[in-house]
């Protein structure tokens, strides 16, 4: 099996400045993890376990404080999440344009995609209304539709299926599963266990910045449920 990503002894410490007092928060601590090509890996753990930090380090947003990260040089990678940060005074369509261009599409390509994105979101006439008039469900639908534009070799998915009502969630899973081709490496962070069970064959359980469990999805999820 060829590796897609390999993290060796990765540590990350953040300075926290609360009320003038300097403290540190150890987000990741001597963490080792290897992800193979084409693997569908689930990442679980409570709040502050280090999931988001780990995804950011994998995506190359910033390097780890200590240890090394190796990524197969020919593989492209992207971190997708719903919280891209919409501009409230822009319409759904304009926000979709912005998201597409930010993700590397040319403006003319992006414009061609806009109506397809609009159809997918089922926003109807709201697609041309400012996002500030949206319900939270509408926001997440737009978020999902604009997050899934990229076709990179490695997809890091941060709570991307946490979208509104059941019918749209099914549709979102359907759209996502089309991306889960055999050669694509996927790392999924999600709070709902059945989504992880459905998509991932292997699960890594993080606790206090370290790997507490790593193995077949069923086993790790079971151990995690017991501990909780």
């Amino acid at each position: 099996m060829m590796s897609a990503l390999k993290l060796t002894n990765v540590g990350m410490r953040f300075a926290m400045n609360s009320e003038g007092e300097k403290r540190h928060f150890q987000a990741l601590n001597a963490l080792n993890l290897e992800v193979n090509r084409g693997e569908k890996l689930g990442l679980i753990g409570g709040n502050g376990a280090g999931k988001s930090t780990l995804l950011r380090i994998m995506a190359g947003i910033y390097p780890p404080g200590s240890g090394t990260v190796w990524r197969a040089p020919e593989l492209s990678i992207a971190l997708l999440s719903l919280g891209l940060g919409f501009k409230n005074d822009l319409t759904g369509r304009e926000n979709a344009l912005l998201a597409a261009v930010l993700q590397g599409m040319s403006k003319s390509d992006a414009k061609r995609h806009l109506s397809a994105i609009g159809d997918f979101t089922e926003l109807g006439r709201f697609y041309d209304e400012p996002v500030k008039s949206y319900s939270s469900g509408m926001r997440t639908r737009l978020g999902f539709a604009t997050a899934l534009l990229l076709d990179t070799d490695i997809l890091l998915l941060d709570e991307i299926l946490a979208v509104g009502d059941q019918s749209f969630r099914n549709k979102a899973r359907e759209a996502l599963s089309q991306k889960l081709t055999e050669d694509r490496t996927v790392i999924l962070v999600h709070h709902a266990e059945n989504a992880i069970r459905e998509i991932c064959s292997r699960v890594v359980w993080l606790e206090q910045g370290q790997v507490r469990g790593d193995g077949p999805a069923e086993e790790v999820l079971e151990a995690y449920a017991k501990a909780a």
Partner: peptide
């Protein structure tokens, strides 16, 4: 990212922000 992409991105963000601000 090429220089052309970079400036096109800068321009798109700037124009959309103008719209948002005006609204």
């Amino acid at each position: 990212m090429t220089l052309k992409q970079y400036f096109s991105l800068v321009d798109t963000i700037a124009r959309l922000s103008l719209k948002a601000e005006a609204r």
